[in-house]
Amino acid sequence: MLNVEQIQQIIPHRPPFLLIDRILELEPGKRAVGLKNVTMNEPHFVGHFPGFPVMPGVLILEALAQVGATAILAVEANKGKIGLFAGVDEFRWRGQVVPGDTLTLEVEIVRLKGPVGKGQATAKVGDKVVAEGQLMFALTDPSKD
Rank of each mutant, 00 (worst) to 15 (best):
E90H: 14
I72V: 10
H48Y: 08
T39K: 08
E62A: 08
A63F: 07
G80Y: 10
L61R: 00
K79F: 02
G87Y: 14
T104N: 04
P56Y: 01
I60C: 06
V67T: 14
G68R: 01
V98A: 06
D89P: 10
P53Y: 00
L26Y: 02
I72D: 02
A86S: 14
T102L: 09
A77C: 08
Q96N: 06
V107T: 10
H48G: 03
N78K: 12
G87F: 13
A69D: 08
R92P: 09
E62S: 08
N41E: 01
G51T: 12
T104D: 06
F85K: 01
W93I: 13
F45R: 00
M55Q: 00
G68Q: 02
I82T: 10
L64S: 08
R94S: 14
G29Y: 05
L103Q: 00
E90W: 01
A69Y: 06
G83N: 14
D89Y: 08
L59R: 14
K81G: 03
G68Y: 06
A65C: 13
H44W: 15
L61T: 15
E42L: 08
L84W: 15
P99G: 13
K81W: 07
G34I: 08
G68W: 04
A71V: 06
D101Q: 09
H48K: 06
L84T: 10
L73Y: 07
P50C: 12
E76M: 08
G57D: 06
L59P: 11
A77W: 03
T39R: 12
I72Q: 00
V98Y: 07
Q66Y: 12
D101I: 01
L105W: 04
E76T: 15
A74N: 05
R31K: 15
P43I: 03
G100A: 09
W93H: 13
L73V: 07
I82N: 12
V46P: 01
L105Q: 07
V46K: 13
E106Y: 07
H44N: 09
T39C: 08
M40F: 15
N41G: 11
P28N: 00
G80V: 13
K79C: 01
F45D: 07
M40H: 04
H44Y: 15
L64Y: 04
V97G: 04
V67W: 01
A86T: 12
G100E: 10
A69H: 10
P99S: 14
V58E: 04
V58Q: 05
V98G: 00
A71W: 05
F85P: 01
R94K: 15
G57P: 11
V54I: 15
E90I: 06
